[in-house]
Design a protein around this nucleic acid. Structure first.
Lengths: 155, 155
DNA sequence: TTCAATTAAATTGTGCACAATTAAAGTTCA
DNA sequence: TGAACTTTAATTGTGCACAATTTAATTGAA
């Protein structure tokens, strides 16, 4: 087998390892989040909104987008679904009608209490040392940093 | 900030690091694969088919699914698109009409030559030591193994 | 001031993922 | 045999991702 053949072997693709693990982790979350009535991307949006203050400086759609690296094409319909579920309120900002501010309803805040269980439930029953998870998380974030701050292609 | 609050912080979610990096890596591949006329999942399917023998023991849809952890709901339309592009041939197996065998056309094999460039192009221009990538790949695969061989939930 | 640029979100269209169901072919065993 | 079960893909329906375009509001210069 040539060097190029080896490069094309599925098992040698870091991209595949990342792709497969990401989907496996998402699948682990799915039943836990289903109890909250959330999908995985909806959960990530809620994490952002729970962190972000409400009121005057409530998160804009673009704030959530910057945090999660998602655009309005993904977020607009997702946020409408969260609004339909009564978790989120979307309202145009009076002083700049282009901006949509996102605030949480009572139910939106209440859901956070139930969500507190999720990270613990996910890790437990999984025979992996916490330090190992932390180390991986740091490595993933470090590589994300590099990818986002280097030229989009080979030169 | 409580311990639970910290657990819910986006930056502490390994799931988010994985999700964001996976999409960033996919985005890196996109322009390279666009030159081949492939999407990222299509590229992964082609990697499997290039590895798998043609002829009598050509890959079945379920073989590709087992390798990539994808079901027929995802693969059937994707494979039809590859067939429309003239890269793949789907045919029912005569001895067992339930099975669909996947073989590559001339163009499907020819595309492999162009694809040889991809892994190299991706890594170059990215200031990350190869050993670091290999280490991460091993860690990701190890965790995938653990996830796939442990109970689906907290018990 | 007014008109060209910019900005923010929404819309449109394509292609995954995945749950759930269906359809058809093959197997097993009373 | 033939009825129950299993296996394999395909289908249906929902919800992301993301490119490309559109709409509307705001800003910035000549």
């Amino acid at each position: 087998m040539s060097a190029d053949d080896q490069m094309l072997a599925l098992d040698n693709q870091i991209c595949f390892a990342l792709y497969a693990l990401n989907r496996a982790v998402t699948a682990r979350y799915r039943p836990l989040l289903a109890e909250l009535g959330l999908t995985y991307p909806q959960y990530l949006v809620m994490l952002v909104l729970w962190e972000h203050g409400s009121g005057e400086e409530a998160a804009r759609v673009s704030d959530v987008g910057a945090r999660l690296r998602l655009d309005s094409g993904t977020l607009t319909p997702l946020l409408k679904r969260l609004e339909d579920r009564g978790l989120v309120i979307r309202q145009r900002q009076a002083t700049d009608e282009r901006v949509v501010r996102l605030s949480l309803t009572e139910d939106g805040w209440r859901l956070r209490e139930a969500a507190r269980q999720v990270p613990g439930q996910l890790v437990c029953g999984l025979d992996v040392a916490p330090e190992r998870m932390v180390a991986l998380r740091h490595e993933l974030r470090s590589l994300l940093e590099i990818l986002e701050h280097s030229a989009p292609n080979d030169q």
